[in-house]
Amino acid sequence: MITKITHTCIYVLDQNSAYDFYVNKLGFKVHTDAPMGEGARWLTVTPPEQPELEITLFLVAEGGMFDEETVQIMTTLIKKGTFGAAVFTCKDLLATYEELKSKGVVFKKPPTKEFYGYEALFLDDSGNWFSLAQINS
């Protein structure tokens, strides 16, 4: 029986920029930042109130898991905003929206009333999009 998710991946185009976005703008915490040799880096962050879920900020780069063609295809798709990577939740969407906007986070959709609460959509620094939701209690 599967019990939990411990790791998940967000594919990013620049790990330094992703670090700044996820840590300094979204307020995530760095869980692991380990050098893996030859410029490779294992970088994981956790949502502020979910320290057991590691989100790997996985660099799309040639070598290891990706060949040159895959890198080109993935880079194009990520930049195009093809991938919806996750749904994040917050206690108060309007406040979180105002705060993230003031930090320069780009929103595709402003807070909108949905049947389950409120939702907005934002983009990370690579082009991945996320839902940011406030769920009715």
Binding site: H7, T32, A34, P35, M36, A40, W42, G63, G64, M65
Partner: peptide, 20 residues
């Protein structure tokens, strides 16, 4: 520990697939 033995912090599937 992270500097000396980073593989302790990476799930093996990712480490193997990346050739680490």
């Amino acid at each position: 520990a992270m500097q000396l033995n980073p593989l302790l912090f990476v799930p093996n599937c990712f480490a193997e697939n990346n050739g680490w």
